[in-house]
Design a protein around this nucleic acid. Structure first.
Length: 1079
RNA sequence: GGGCUCAUAGCUCAGUUGGCAGAGCGCGUCGCUGAUAACGACGAGGUCACAGGUUCAAGUCCUGUUGGGCCCA
């Protein structure tokens, strides 16, 4: 069967879609799995993709790696699991579902019904998992798509139960408190990241108030706050021990405050707002002045105040009782001279820093607010009111009791809810934690694995060393239902390790749970008997779990640890995981290691590879909001996924990749198109010649030097491919493969082109065909894991259609093995030398200002080493043709044609002369170049004088530089010199003109749309003498090259095409017409 | 404040053990072309972020500084 014709202008995306259909129709993936069943295993563990939105192009990077390393290992004949994972649970999904309904807060969800809400979250995850599946297939990602794991599955959730149970049995689970920014309207905690997005500059009522010192009647601390509601929960007042404070007398009262705070001017700490348009702030001194005469009676250090006790601002409220006996002055380094009074109000239940400080000092924590931001009943006149609404009444109350000093409107940056824009408050929240005193064991696991890049391990260990306890709870709805049952009567809690255990412990509610997944709200119905006090209403805590638990149990749950231990043992630990680096050290990598260490005391992976982020063409991070995120489907339709995959594969994984039209186009132009063009060149000729791979083979001795060279390079590349794939360093291979395509296209094919023309099957043509066929099919196999579609297309046409017993898909074939017999290092070196000499000769030609079209009499090469010498001898014909010279001459020296200077070679002089290298350099620079060269040519010694001593140097110590006379143009590199003869004989001149004419005619043929084989009648009309002579002298040559049956010097009646051009400065009109057939 | 990491041509990046600073793109000039949507040659473009140190010799090793990224506090 003949090869199919290959269109050089191909629609790659359309072609990829055809291949997808082919794979589907032929069950190509399933066949591959059958083929490798029972073979040695290669275990890959997929980090689940968040199934919450369609894929962007940035998801394709990791997935490209996953697919290409899987394909490589499959092509070595290994059995794989091919299991993809979807991350389904968590706040991200909730947020999207809330948006769909326009919910603003948790109350809205509860009113709507948790059950319905959770079902919709599940449905959303399933929906986008399905979309991502389709997109992944489009990417060419071969996975067992019907067997993907979902973190929301029962197995996965119960797996986490088992993990938590084990932690519980070791006494590691505890209930603690976390202070967090909280949105009262949404009724939810806000993460640090979310909080960073929500800062706005707003005005708050700030208050200066007195704290009367109990030990010193009539003396007060002067304190300031921008959040009056927190005064309800004041516990302590902080000073900086080494700061200077003043004692100010006004009337019969004394006030303590920071000296600088007292004296300095004050300003609103704003960046966006214009301070000049805001109401001014009075210095504290000025505020005193406002109230009447005052005097500073004493200066003192903060430490002198530490330990004094005071009467709190709201000690009469029941909720503050616990703080009354705790009120005292404490020292704190964070107190500043630049803000407030230098004495800071501390309420550990109402602020992040306050909470930390309070924890360190063991201060009481007063937490005055409910989830909705209203005060608890024990806070008297504040009870039931929102924290944000009480500033005015607090001021009034302070004033009534005589402890208000001043108030003002103060502008500052304050965090707001990123979703509903309400102001945040700080709350103390009960949370569940895993005690992390077993971090050393996790670190041991981390050390078992190989990390790529290697610094990843250090980074992970750093996190493990410094991380706090693992907070596993979140006050939400859609997620792992934490299997913690807590007794309301006695406070005892325990962790349930699985469904069966729960069933056996359930005393009520099982019937309402039965038949549902272990999620809220159904699981919340199940009550158990308290193991401590026997209370039968012990219920599950309402919290859901941290989503990283979901993703981290998968090395056990999805690999069958709980269901089929024998299977699990075969596949665990995974040989390989690969994910994006940013964030994962403290997320997936961490959680995966922790869970596996707890359960089976080892790392769940042998090799972990990380990669960076995908940026846009300009290097900016891709964000939906900045509008530079690229939709996967669009990109796939526009540029095709092979281009995308190559771009990702070639990029250094540790840095970010820039993705955009510019970079994609570069890949297309530098890699995909040249490869396609070589393939098209071969196919379209093979088709015409009816090349048969099995029949038209070639023996080694029949192959040309170029053939043997390209096979040598090919086999070196195979070797590199194995290294590169197996060490997860595919970028190296891509770089070399790119070079290979380039040299194949611009050297091998260009230089071998004519061997493919002509009739019949002479040995050399046969060798050319056989060689190029072998190179194409083998190289195609090397890149197949990276560009599976392109490779499949090429394979289908070149191999599958030709060979009845060939597997239908390239992905069913074995990865090539390097044939070391074919690697000929010397030949490769000679070709490399040839390319270098060619480049030098072109440079010399350029210098001669004579076009390559113009034949020259002679090229002289003075080889720099044996390899170059052999290269010229072996590839002499290529030099003649490529450089358009009549003769190539090898010479030992060009000394008589050049003037010479000498320069030091420090690489050699350095070791030789050590400390005196600088002097040696100077000495060499002063040598006479010509004398030195002659001496070396006769193997005579050359000496230099260094610091009075005479020393020998040899050729390696210096570099000779040359320049050439009027008749020659030259170029040199090291010892190598190339010279071209600039003298033109009339004969050479005419040949050059003839070639000029031919080129013009050929262009015209092409423009006129003639076929390569069409014969023409040609008219060359012009008066000038020079072209005429050339035409006469090279009449046959011109006819032959342009397929002209006749050349006239009078205009044709009806030319098909014509062009007015200039040849050697003379006007020439070219006309052509199609010749009548049969001539 | 701490950890990791990066800084090389206008842009994107290579630079393995210390030895004359590289590629691709872009730009300019010239050339070549009946496989090519190409290709080739030449040119302009560099204080290898900065400052010390080790060394005959530092983009490379060491210390510090500055700036960017990620993470932690």
């Amino acid at each position: 069967m003949a090869f199919e014709k290959v269109d050089p202008k191909v629609d790659f995306p359309a072609q990829e879609r055809e291949i997808l259909t082919f794979w589907q129709e032929t069950q190509a993936f399933e066949k591959l799995r059958e083929q490798n069943e029972g073979k040695p295993r290669w275990s890959f563990l997929d980090g689940p993709i968040t199934a919450n939105n369609p894929m962007g192009v940035h998801h394709a990077w990791g997935r490209t790696y996953k697919d290409l390393y899987q394909r490589y290992n499959a092509s070595l004949g290994r059995e794989l699991r091919y299991q993809n994972g979807f991350d389904c649970q968590g706040l991200w999904v909730e947020v999207e579902v809330e948006k769909e309904h326009g919910f603003a807060c948790k109350k809205d969800i509860e009113t709507y019904g948790i059950g319905k809400f959770v079902e919709e979250c599940k449905a959303r995850a399933s929906h986008f998992a399905a979309i991502q599946t389709e997109q992944s297939k489009r990417l060419g990602y071969w996975m067992d798509w019907d067997n993907s794991y979902y973190t929301m599955s029962d197995d996965n959730n119960y797996g986490i139960w088992a993990f938590l149970k084990k932690c519980f049995e070791k006494g590691l689970i505890y209930k603690g408190v976390d202070s967090m920014p909280w949105c009262p309207r949404c009724g939810t905690g806000i993460s640090q990241m979310e909080m960073n997005e929500g800062y706005h500059e707003v005005a708050h009522t700030s208050v200066f108030f007195k704290l009367p010192l109990r030990e010193r009647p009539g003396e007060n601390l002067l304190v300031w706050t921008t959040t009056p509601w927190t005064l309800s929960s004041n516990v302590a007042a902080a000073v900086k021990p080494d700061m200077t404070y003043v004692k100010v007398k006004q009337g019969d009262q004394f006030y303590y405050l920071g000296k600088a705070n007292f004296e300095n001017a004050r300003a609103h700490p704003v960046q966006q707002l214009d301070p000049s348009k805001l109401p001014g702030l009075m210095s504290i001194q000025a505020q005193f002045k406002n109230n009447g005469p005052f005097e500073v009676v004493e200066e003192l250090e903060g430490k002198e105040l530490v330990g004094l006790t005071y009467t709190g601002p709201f000690d009469m409220l029941d909720g503050a009782t616990e703080a009354v006996d705790a009120h005292r002055v404490i020292d704190w380094e964070e107190v500043t001279e630049s803000e407030g009074t230098g004495i800071v109000h501390i309420a550990p239940g109402c602020g992040a820093e306050d909470y930390q400080l309070g924890k360190e000092l063991g201060l009481p924590q007063i937490a005055p607010l409910f989830e909705d931001g209203t005060f608890r009943p024990e806070f008297g006149f504040l009870a039931g009111r929102a924290a944000g609404d009480v500033a005015g009444d607090i001021v009034a109350d302070l004033k009534k009791r005589g402890v208000l000093f001043a108030k003002e409107q103060y502008y500052h940056r304050y965090p707001h809810c990123w979703r509903c824009k309400d102001e945040l408050v700080f709350r103390l929240v009960d949370e569940w934690f895993i005690h992390m005193n077993w971090r050393e064991e996790i670190m041991d696991s981390a050390r078992q694995a190989q990390w790529i890049p290697a610094w990843g391990l250090e980074r992970e260990l750093d996190w493990l060393r410094n991380m706090g306890d693992w907070m596993i709870s979140k006050k939400r709805y859609w997620g792992l239902a934490l299997p913690i049952w807590e007794c309301h009567a006695c406070g005892h809690f325990e962790v349930i390790g699985g469904r069966d255990e729960l069933k056996s412990r359930a005393v009520s509610g099982w019937d309402r749970f039965e038949g549902h997944s272990p999620h809220r709200p159904w699981l919340d119905a199940v009550r158990i008997r308290c193991a401590q006090c026997g209370d039968e209403k012990t219920s599950r805590v309402k919290d859901v779990g941290n989503p990283w638990l979901d993703a981290s149990i998968v090395s056990l749950s999805t690999m069958g640890y709980f269901a089929d231990r024998a299977y699990w043992e075969k596949w665990f630990p995974a040989d390989f995981v690969v994910e994006a680096l940013p964030g994962q050290f403290r997320n997936w990598f961490y959680a995966l290691l922790a869970v596996s260490t707890m359960m089976v005391e080892q790392s769940p992976f042998k090799v972990l590879k990380g990669h960076g982020l995908v940026m846009d063409d300009e290097g900016k991070p891709m964000h939906k909001s900045s509008g530079n995120a690229v939709d996967f489907n669009e990109a796939a339709d526009e540029i095709g996924v092979d281009v995308m995959r190559w771009l990702y594969a070639m990029t250094s994984p540790e840095r970010n990749v820039l993705f955009g039209p510019k970079h994609c186009d570069e890949v297309r132009r530098a890699v995909i198109l040249p490869w396609w063009n070589v393939y098209a060149f071969f196919c379209n000729l093979a088709r015409v010649d009816d090349f048969k791979p099995a029949e038209h083979t070639a023996e080694t001795q029949d192959r040309s030097a170029l053939d043997r060279w390209i096979l040598s390079d090919l086999n070196k590349l195979i070797r590199l491919a194995h290294e590169s794939y197996s060490r997860y360093d595919i970028g190296k291979f891509c770089a070399e493969a790119g070079r290979f395509i380039d040299v194949l296209s611009t050297w091998y094919v260009r230089r071998s082109r004519r061997r493919f023309y002509g009739d019949g099957w002479p040995k050399d043509k046969r060798a050319a065909y056989a060689t190029l066929y072998e190179v194409l099919t083998t190289f195609n196999r090397l890149i197949a894991p990276i560009v599976p579609f392109l490779a499949e297309t090429v394979y289908r046409n070149l191999v599958a259609s030709q060979c009845a017993d060939a597997p239908p898909s390239v992905h069913h074939t074995e990865f090539p093995t390097a044939d070391e017999m074919l690697v000929d290092a010397e030949l490769s070196a000679r070709v490399a030398a040839t390319l270098k000499l060619m480049s030098l000769a072109r440079s010399a030609r350029k210098d001669s200002k004579l076009k390559v079209r113009q034949p020259l009499a002679q090229l002289i090469i003075v080889p720099g080493d044996d390899t170059e010498h052999q290269a010229v001898q072996q590839f002499r014909d290529h030099f003649l043709e490529e450089l358009n010279v009549k003769q190539v001459t090898l010479r030992e020296s060009a000394g008589d044609m050049t003037t010479v200077s000498v320069e030091p070679n420090m690489k050699a002089l350095g070791p030789k002369f050590g400390r005196s290298a600088a002097a040696a350099r100077e000495a060499v620079e002063n040598l006479d170049g010509k004398l030195v060269e002659d001496a070396f040519a006769r193997s005579q010694p050359v000496t230099i004088n260094i610091e009075g001593n005479s020393t020998l140097i040899d050729p390696a110590d210096v570099t000779i530089r040359r320049s050439y006379g009027d008749d020659w143009a030259g170029a040199a590199d090291g010892q190598t010199v190339v010279l071209v003869d600039k003298r033109l004989t009339p004969e050479l001149k005419n040949e050059g003109l003839a070639r000029d004419i031919i080129r013009n005619v050929q262009n015209l043929r092409k423009d006129a749309g003639l076929d390569i084989a069409d014969r023409i009648t040609l008219a060359l009309v012009g008066d000038a003498k020079a072209p005429k002579e050339a035409m006469d002298a090279f009449d046959d040559y011109i006819k032959n090259e342009t397929l002209a049956v006749e050349i006239t010097d009078t205009p044709l009646g009806k030319p098909l095409a014509s062009n007015d051009t200039r040849i050697d400065g003379n006007a020439l009109r070219i006309e052509l017409a199609k010749a009548t057939s049969g001539v």
